[in-house]
Amino acid sequence: MDVKLFDSELKVMTVLWKEGDATAKHISDVLKEEVGWNMNTTYTLIKRCMKKGAIERSEPNFMCHALISQEEVQKAETQELIDKVYDGSADKLFAALLGRKKLSKQQIDELRKIVGELE
């Protein structure tokens, strides 16, 4: 099984690994205490884990069950997060919201040179 998870999703899994099967409500309560997430955020993450096949949910009470063990899981690379979760539009949106774009290696070097000269 090849499941790649992000830090936030791992956090959800950790609760399940530590406490065994738990209701979504319970996970949410634990994480609210631990990392300050609200219910919606936790539920969104549980849904993402389900989609990736890491969690199975059953009635009643949205009982969650971990389908993979801590050893099986792989860390997702940040770049994949940008590409998959945000359709690769992360940069576009940030550029729009924050007004910034990336620079090339060469441009970075030029900037360093400028600082060196002015120092």
Binding site: R100, K102, S104, Q107, I108, L111, L118
Partner: peptide, 25 residues
Amino acid sequence: LEEQRSVFLSWGNSFSKNAMEERVV
């Protein structure tokens, strides 16, 4: 920090570079 975020793109944006240069100077 600019460098860290620039790993993903091989090409740069001269507009951003100008802005960055303006800042550094």
